[in-house]
Design a protein around this nucleic acid. Structure first.
Lengths: 236, 236
DNA sequence: CAGTGGTCTAGACCACGAG
DNA sequence: TCGTGGTCTAGACCACTGG
């Protein structure tokens, strides 16, 4: 594969693309072992480190399996990883050309229910800060948030005012996390969901549960009930 | 007594961890500019390339913003990217300790509805292969699949028998894709969903839409209706 | 313009694990 | 055991973009 003159894309990218093409075109088939880095470096006329970078990218994508000594193989079941980012509600609303607003419904201390305790890895009944809020786009409910915040790991939370800056944005700016779990599910709107989101009871809602930790322990766990029509997209 | 050097984690990892710690501990705050690669290389006693690798990892995580000339800054809104992989149904069922089976309900040609046409970027009404199948765990419905396959980009599909190997696995092995879209939403079970999944009408279902392309065009577009209780998890 | 990250190289040593 | 990928280095040139 020759690269005519000065190439715009980085060589590692070009090599990755070429390898992808060979896989797509079945020159290298599922399960096949491909040439080792040194050989490819010679073929492409680059340093081995460059080939290494290209192949690592493809391995990250899930297209290649790499093992020392065993070499690099085309993945049998190329179940590719997909990445997405949970959008900040406000940004999502504004991206849709609507005006964002939110309303803090309640903020009080309370004992965490078992399900939340399980998610956060805390003893059930431990008292955390409990928030409820609704996010609006052009005045229409967009997302209903039910959140628990652990003051042990985020002591500064005591002074935070969530009426103007919403909890998510405050946390994101004031309590960096190391790790987070997210899961998606569906649920029929219960009475409260229905009231908050102004939908009928039983309406199918996309539910997002998210829990985050720092090195001290769990920071926050939130259940987001999304208005129908809300869609989470990802690509790759 | 000499110190056994043998550092298990790669230096780039250690540096990434240390930088993460400095951000967590607010030594470097949101928006701050951090020292440039050359300085960090001196501080940590490594080559600049090693620092570069570490910082790129953190930038990929969304923790740092890097720009030429402007330097590296701690992200203001550290909205971190999350990665997940759509599990192969069979693997998911088996991971739960259940026995997987599936049933092909229908396979026939048909014109694609507008919504699918939009997703695939094909003209509405174009005739594709239309499949319906149900995936079971221990004989109980787990997922209901409604799929369209484009024989133009996957001519080999004509000879495929989806009774024994399900369409997803056949495609994954026989039609490598370059790009895929996924989205999540929620819907109330309609009559067909309810029948296929053996749930009551109106039950909230997690819906997954997935469309994939190769260099020839769209390969397949599928709607997966998941049995209640089904959860998609991601982490970071 | 010049400082900063982006990329590449040639060479080296090492760790893992298949055979 | 020893081939293969994992990682690191020191040095270099380049591309972008802020000031």
């Amino acid at each position: 594969m020759t690269v005519p003159p000065a190439s715009q894309p980085p060589k590692a990218q070009l090599i990755a693309t070429e390898v992808r093409r060979r896989i797509m075109d079945r020159e290298w088939r599922q399960g096949d072992r491909i040439p080792d880095e040194a050989d490819l470096a010679v073929e492409f006329g680059v340093a081995r480190a460059t080939v290494n970078k290209a192949l690592q990218m493809l391995a990250d994508e899930g297209l290649l399996d790499r093992k020392r000594r065993a070499g690099t193989h085309v993945t049998i079941n190329p179940v590719r990883k997909t990445t997405f980012s949970i959008p900040i509600v406000r940004e999502q609303v504004e991206a849709a050309g609507m005006t964002y607003s939110h309303r803090l419904i309640a903020r009080r201390d309370g004992p965490i229910p078992p399900q939340i305790a399980l998610r956060m890895g805390l003893p059930p009944g431990q008292v955390l800060i409990h928030l409820r809020a609704v996010h609006y786009g052009d005045g229409k409910p967009f997302q209903f948030e039910d959140r628990w915040i652990n003051r042990t790991t985020v002591p500064q939370v005591e002074g935070a005012d969530f009426h103007h800056l919403n909890a998510n944005e405050w946390l994101v700016r004031n309590a960096p996390y190391l790790r987070a779990d997210v899961d998606f599910s569906a649920a029929n709107a219960d009475a409260r969901d229905a009231r908050m989101l102004q939908v009928r009871r039983g309406q199918a809602l996309l539910i997002l549960h998210r829990t985050s930790w720092n090195d001290q322990g769990p920071i926050t766990s939130v259940r987001l009930a999304c208005h129908p029509g809300f869609v989470i997209s990802a690509a790759n």
